[in-house]
Write a protein that binds this DNA or RNA. Sequence first.
DNA 1: GCTAGCCTATCTACTAGTAGGTAGGTAACA
DNA 2: TGTTACCTACCTACTAGTAGATAGGCTAGC
Lengths: 221, 221
Amino acid sequence: MALPCPERNDCQICTYTPFVEVSMTVLPLNVPTRDRILDLAEELIQRYGYNGFSYDDIARSISIRKPSIHYHFATKAELGAAVAHRYTERFANTLQTITDTQKTAHSQLQAYIELFAQTYRRDRRLCLCGMLGAEAEALPQGMRGEIYQFFLINQEWLACVLRRGKEDGEFFCAESPESPESRALLFVASLEGAMVLGRGLEASNLVEEVGLALLADLTKR
Amino acid sequence: MALPCPERNDCQICTYTPFVEVSMTVLPLNVPTRDRILDLAEELIQRYGYNGFSYDDIARSISIRKPSIHYHFATKAELGAAVAHRYTERFANTLQTITDTQKTAHSQLQAYIELFAQTYRRDRRLCLCGMLGAEAEALPQGMRGEIYQFFLINQEWLACVLRRGKEDGEFFCAESPESPESRALLFVASLEGAMVLGRGLEASNLVEEVGLALLADLTKR
DNA sequence: GCTAGCCTATCTACTAGTAGGTAGGTAACA
DNA sequence: TGTTACCTACCTACTAGTAGATAGGCTAGC
């Protein structure tokens, strides 16, 4: 797909141009091509979706030819799966770090919410797996397992934190009959949805707003 | 885009075929072509996204030639905007009906949740504007206004119901400092997100589960 | 009642451009 | 000498969109 022209987003005629430079500000030099492809594909999926970018978009952005991408990732489906896998793995590591560094369940959840808020603040990017979840039906089979894993890991981690928070008397939520798993689901869903709404309403602080309400509810009876 | 083959979704080789028949079971006979195009485009966007279908997909599904679609909708952007506009308008009417027929704020919210649950139960379709919200950055300018309207209408209606529910003593939520608008946002976001998670986790009752938790929180202090 | 003129809705045949992907070659290097 | 990481040149299929023709229906004027 030809990406929208960032310089003239208000121009009706020039809404689409065949190519757009993508932000490369944070990329250090001497990064292996394979990683640069992954990084860019990740950004493009978060911004435009899996069906919203092409090999050519990537090729132009990192100044190599299109077939060179096929050398690293034989098919687009393979690239997509690799991006999703790396994203999920990195996310799981971050959750582990949160568990290790934040003492209370409340501060762990705060850090969790901040992950989503941070992502959205970067050019209003969506959670990669949120975007892919929405597109799931139009995705190659191989990618769906990765998305499934992402949400499962999130739910399990959150349920664990919520359970501990309840045991420690921090929260009153998740009382029977509600399960921590169910509350965990609401937590992820709300944050994913907040990003979608943020884009739709062209708002910049929706994730934070929703996160605050989410935390507040945990201390209610 | 070539749509995925529904009969052999597990087949790696045949993941993509150039064409797939789309469900036409509910369409009565003698529906004007223009409406059939709109109906099908709506279904395709909800299932695969705006960048996930082509004029040719529609043409084949309703057995006309592709240029005939251009006669009714000159550009794909025009078609997309028309679909979103009709969807939002229909949704607004439904909200009015809910207001007119359901007495308590609680039952109005229940009916609201059921709208999302119903949509998802139909082949796991996403809310049209949820899908488009996620894709927003890759969408032609003309469509974004329609998406904005959808979420605004939802937020305003919900805030209104929540305010009334609080006045009538049905709810304890939305106490200061939290505004009904903020709680309304959480409400929509959670339901939109639940649909995305439902797809990601390949679950069928997530919208209902999230809706239940959402309602339960309203009666907490 | 006939007909000229217009409108609607469709068609076939086409365009330029983009999609993912392949074949085969090359230069650097261990 | 084989491997790695790229390249040029190409392919087929699909993309949105256009040009021009046509068949049938409606209506005003004679």
